[in-house]
Design a protein around this nucleic acid. Structure first.
Lengths: 111, 111
DNA sequence: GCGACAGTCAACCAATTGGTTGAATAATGA
DNA sequence: TCATTATTCAACCAATTGGTTGACTGTCGC
């Protein structure tokens, strides 16, 4: 099942990458600017950004010679939903949760 | 910041370990029983369980000669909260989600 | 006490990861 | 046009990961 979660969680497992995501929460950034605060080569940061992109956690868009990085919440949401079936919901009715989710998915699609 | 998230997300990055967590959502299990559905040595599963334990995702408790594994939702919650700060949960409608949660918690507590 | 069962440990292996450096590509500006 | 800036690529390295096997350590039932 879902190799997507593999790459998402693996991407989130690295503190440098989580820090990058936090930075991008503030604002979109160019690769060089992302790299600046880190004590690490630009190439290393470029690799990290590649991993985040492949995981679907960010989007990279090239304008001119600079490549802009912006957060893409979709992947995070997918992982978050998976996790929430464990966390808060063990004290809570799981069936109701599923019903809720299906309802949500239904309503967003039809209206 | 928080090396705890490192080990939690790393633990969640493996599909075998996520499958184990799903199994434990149903019921507490002995190590041998956890290993049963997997096409993998018992030692390998034992390692996976060690990783899940160190990440704080499960608790292992030895009773007699069998070691019981049970879910520990605390670590998952911690990671989940971190993720939620990236929010933008438009698709699932977080307001409705919270409302749902409060409802659930209310009803399970009072009746 | 003894054989069978539950689980871990230790040594090993191949593949992956996170970093480096130096060269390559591509767009910019003077 | 040419040096500069932005970014990636390729080769390499050490450390980690996910798996194996075989030996070891309890603990149970008879």
């Amino acid at each position: 099942m879902s190799t997507a979660l593999d790459t998402i969680f693996a991407a989130l497992a690295d503190p440098t990458r989580r820090a990058i995501l936090s930075m991008l929460l503030e604002d979109d950034m160019a690769v060089t600017d992302v790299a600046d605060p880190f004590d690490m080569s630009l190439a290393a940061i470029s690799k990290h950004l590649g991993i985040l992109t492949r995981a679907g956690l960010i989007i990279q868009e090239k304008r001119g010679r600079v490549k802009w990085c912006k957060l893409d919440p979709d992947a995070m949401r997918e992982a978050s939903i998976w996790m929430q079936s464990f966390g808060q919901f063990e004290a809570v009715n799981l069936d109701a949760f599923e019903e809720f989710l299906q309802n949500e998915l239904g309503t967003t699609k039809q209206s």
